[in-house]
Amino acid sequence: MNLTTEYIQRCQGILTTIEQQAEAIQQAAGWFSQTILAGRMVHLFGSGHSRIMVEEMWPRYGSFPGFNPIVELSLSFHNLVVGANGQRQAMFLENVPGLAQRILRNYDLSNLDSALVISSSGSNVVPIEMAELFQQQGVKVVALITKEHAEKSTSKRADGKKLSDFADLVLDTGAPVGDAMIAVPGLATPVAPGSTVGGAVLVNCIKAEVAQLLTQAGQPPRVLSAGNVVGTEKAVSLFESAYDEHAHRLAKLYQRVGVPSYVSEQSGTFTNNQGF
């Protein structure tokens, strides 16, 4: 068997693992659709390469507003590798206690919100603290982890707790311990990770289920669509209206955040629900 065939077969195993989670996927979609129908946002967070799943959810073709991508460049800017903004710094920062709190200080959270927190190992401090802080604000948390890898990983958090300890629902990418799936003859360490494949499939399954629930509720989403599918004029209209809807939803997260000002007071009664 060549290695391409082997990798594809391993990915087929990942797909089977995901298919077995259909009920959990529908539960996540139910929470997310309720948030979107309430005019609020589903918060998306992942450090390191988990950022890929955040961008897979929104914004891209076949996706729609209702999601708040929280992407910290200091935790996920990989292309420079070394030097300023290098990978060493990113890997250090994703285990700094308190950073999650500073990130979420920017948003006025609501218990109508929900969240998807992605971390293959489920063991780095920042994603764990993000989930913990979301739960403290009454936000439903869906954790996307690699179950086998997370179980074999040691938490970087002092109390040993992992992302799954602060999740209302856990989804598994189906990748193996260590993520890499292919053993190359003569090479001591495996290559070709699988969590990105599983994560992307899970994210898009959720996306499809949410779209169906929104449509059934009489609020079909504005989906970013290609001009060669819907026509150029319609595609432009969808993009513009989807981005505008995103802005309107996002405005609610900033309108009454933190310390009141005369601007916030002019918009009505000021309430800070953060507790940070």
Rank of each mutant, 00 (worst) to 15 (best):
T173Y: 01
G231N: 08
T189L: 13
G86L: 07
T215N: 03
D172Q: 08
K161D: 07
S63E: 04
A242V: 07
R40H: 09
L213Q: 12
E233I: 06
I206C: 05
Q266L: 13
A131S: 08
I18E: 00
G30N: 11
E72R: 10
S119A: 14
V141P: 10
Q89E: 11
Q274N: 15
I14Q: 07
L44K: 11
Q212C: 04
F166K: 13
L73G: 04
L214Y: 01
P97E: 09
A150F: 06
T215R: 03
V263C: 01
H78N: 02
Q12H: 11
I36V: 14
V117H: 01
V82H: 10
E265M: 11
Y243G: 00
S114N: 03
L238G: 03
H49P: 14
V82R: 10
Q9V: 12
G275Y: 07
I128L: 03
V203E: 00
L171N: 02
M57G: 04
E148R: 13
Y262Q: 12
I103V: 15
F239S: 00
S153L: 05
D159W: 09
T196G: 07
L75N: 09
S267M: 12
E72H: 03
V229G: 02
Y107L: 13
Q216P: 01
E72K: 09
N111D: 15
F92Y: 14
I118Q: 00
T16P: 03
W31A: 07
I206H: 00
F77W: 04
L93A: 14
Q9H: 15
N2Q: 07
V82F: 06
Q136W: 10
G231C: 09
A180W: 05
V210T: 01
A247T: 05
A28L: 11
E245Y: 03
W31Q: 10
P193S: 01
K252D: 03
V259Y: 04
E94A: 07
L37T: 02
R88D: 12
I103L: 14
D168V: 01
N68C: 13
A235G: 06
C11D: 03
S153W: 12
E19H: 15
G86D: 04
L253Y: 02
R102G: 05
Q12C: 08
G86H: 03
D108N: 14
D159C: 08
S195E: 00
V210F: 03
P127W: 02
Q216F: 00
K161T: 14
